[in-house]
């Protein structure tokens, strides 16, 4: 299932890295986990587009192990679309009122950079 032919060892290594990244998105390995809230409220607010953006962004960073999961409504419907990020230590961060640009920043700054994007965190 390859679009490009492998012409060198470098190509093979690149394919391996890409495949490993893709595996990590769906595997049950422990570590970083992003959960998208796909309740009725979340879906109506745009959660599927958030998930599509997450898939695109995480595919670009195959070296980072991240598990993608879905969950339902968290009871904060006015904050949808939402995601919960669980870092390697198990600490959870809930982000709300998301769009594609916010998702990109959360991936870059928090998931990859380790620093929460504080202005998008849901505070109750």
């Amino acid at each position: 299932m390859m679009d490009n032919k492998i012409k060198s060892l470098k190509d093979l290594e690149a394919l391996k890295r890409k495949a490993r990244g893709e595996v990590n998105l769906r595997s049950d390995e422990e570590g970083k986990k992003v959960t998208v809230h796909l309740g009725t409220c979340g879906i109506a607010a745009g959660a599927r587009d958030v998930l599509a953006c997450l898939m695109d962004e995480l595919t670009k960073t195959p070296q980072t192990k991240v598990v993608l999961r879905q969950t339902g409504c968290a009871g904060l419907c006015d904050q949808e679309p939402m995601l919960t990020y669980c870092d390697e230590s198990g600490k959870q961060f809930v982000y709300g009122k998301l769009d594609k640009n916010k998702v990109k920043r959360i991936i870059q700054e928090h998931v990859l950079g380790g620093k929460p994007a504080a202005e998008y965190l849901v505070t109750t």
């Binding site: 998105l25 769906r26 595997s27 049950d28 998208v36 796909l38 599927r48 998930l51 599509a52 898939m55 993608l68 999961r69 879905q70």
Partner: peptide, 11 residues
């Protein structure tokens, strides 16, 4: 996109 979203998050 709907189906791939489900596939991705429910292996």
């Amino acid at each position: 996109l709907t189906i791939s979203s489900v596939v991705c998050t429910n292996p």
